Simulated assay, not measured.
Amino acid sequence: MNATTLIELGLTGLLVALIPLSLVWRAKGFDNKYRKLVWVTMFFTFDLIMFGAFTRLTDSGLGCPDWPGCYNHSNPLLAHAHINAAQEAMPTGPVTWGKAWIEMTHRYFAMAVGVLIIALMAMAWRRWIRSRGAERQYRPWFPTALLGFVCLQGAFGAWTVTMKLQPVIVTIHLLLGLTLLAMLAWLAARQNPHLPVAPSGRALVWPATIGLALLTLQIALGGWVSTNYAALACTDFPLCNGKLVPDMDFEHGFTLWRHLGMTADGDFLPFQALTAIHWVHRSFAFVVILYVVWLAHKALRDEGLRKTGRWLLIIVGLQLVTGLATIYLSWPLAIAVVHNGGAALLVMLLVMLNYKARYAPAGIAEADSQPAVAAPLGSV
């Protein structure tokens, strides 16, 4: 790819990033600008994950079969001859005008997130150097790690395309995106004051950590369902293909290194393998739901964690409803995208819960506790 195309792609990412950056620069004072940039970057990353789910669920991942451009161009309009030829050869194939624009829009948003993180890192380093390390809230190590992580995520985005949507690569790409969101949620939690947390809330440090680990495993299983197109392997509930325990092929279903739709030996993936993938994700979902509901119930007992616990219950309920709807309604696109977004929201909420349980101001016993620090409007 020539330098002109790379410059055009970089400028496009910068232009997209200017929209959230303009909102940030309207804030008064460096502290407010930095805090707002952290939160804006987190929510922009959440939007990117949602659009990534839309890209994957519309089979647009190979809409432009090279990377980072589209047939060595910065946008599909310049690649019209290649796209027209591919679409005429396969009207419903992986390359069409609609899929090309969806894929490139996803890449533009990803580049914009990179620009936002660079701006975040630059602000942190500038303040850290000027204060000679006196202002610990601007320690630049975490923002710098974010930049390294987003570069790693970009590499897996490239491999997703060049390795033709190999399931394990696409699943890792999803998990890295959610890890980036979790890191931003942790950084965002550091920017806001929080209500005091009583000793009972402090006791949730390890349960909250376990909850985040269980959710991560469930998201990995969900990503494996999505990247293997196994969402409709079971079309009934609570049974699966009329059985409580259907015929399943775990060996082929959970062989990680293989091409999409194929076994490791190069044969077509049997339907029983897709059933195993779907059934494991569905079954483990109830373990995660029960645990998170229990964790949220514990959080509701503490004033400092109550709002986060309440939102956990709401989003878990949303996940249950959208998960069942994808089965009964044969996987409608909008509901499937919302289901992916719900998983991302749960990641953010559990990260917030982990942060508050560890670092919120210490409170006294619940019976005598009084809120000492007002939480900002809308904080979770």
Rank of each mutant, 00 (worst) to 15 (best):
T171C: 06
V150G: 12
P246A: 00
L184Q: 05
F149I: 08
K307E: 10
M248N: 00
A296R: 11
V168P: 00
A296N: 06
I289H: 08
F237C: 09
V95W: 08
A122L: 14
Y328P: 07
L232V: 08
A220V: 01
W159M: 15
V170M: 05
G69V: 06
A124R: 03
F44C: 13
L215W: 08
M42S: 12
A81W: 15
V205E: 13
T326V: 11
Q272W: 04
E88Y: 05
T4A: 10
A230T: 02
T55V: 15
W279Y: 10
P371L: 05
A122T: 12
L62Q: 09
V113D: 00
P91V: 07
M111I: 05
K28T: 14
D59M: 12
C151W: 08
V338Q: 01
L9P: 04
V338A: 04
Q137R: 15
H73S: 15
L62G: 04
A27R: 14
L18P: 02
G93W: 03
N72E: 13
V161M: 01
L318W: 06
A334F: 11
G93F: 06
A188V: 06
A158M: 14
I7C: 05
F30S: 14
Q153W: 00
V337C: 07
A285T: 01
A185I: 10
R130F: 10
L165K: 11
G341M: 05
E8S: 08
K28G: 10
D267M: 15
A233G: 12
H252E: 14
W224R: 02
P68M: 10
A231E: 08
L244R: 03
I117E: 05
T12C: 14
V95Y: 07
L204I: 07
P167A: 06
P167H: 10
I19Y: 04
K356M: 09
R26V: 03
T5S: 14
H106V: 13
L23E: 07
F149T: 15
H278F: 07
G69S: 00
L324S: 08
R301D: 13
Q272V: 02
V113S: 03
G223S: 02
Q370S: 04
F109D: 06
S200A: 13
D236S: 12
G10N: 13
P207N: 01
L345P: 11
F54W: 11
A189V: 12
S379E: 15
R126A: 15
G323Y: 09
K33N: 04
V321N: 12
V373S: 03
M50K: 04
L300W: 13
A213L: 13
I335F: 12
L146F: 03
S283P: 01
A86Q: 11
A273F: 02
L152Y: 01
Y229C: 03
I129N: 07
A27S: 09
P68R: 11
F149E: 11
P376Q: 12
N340A: 12
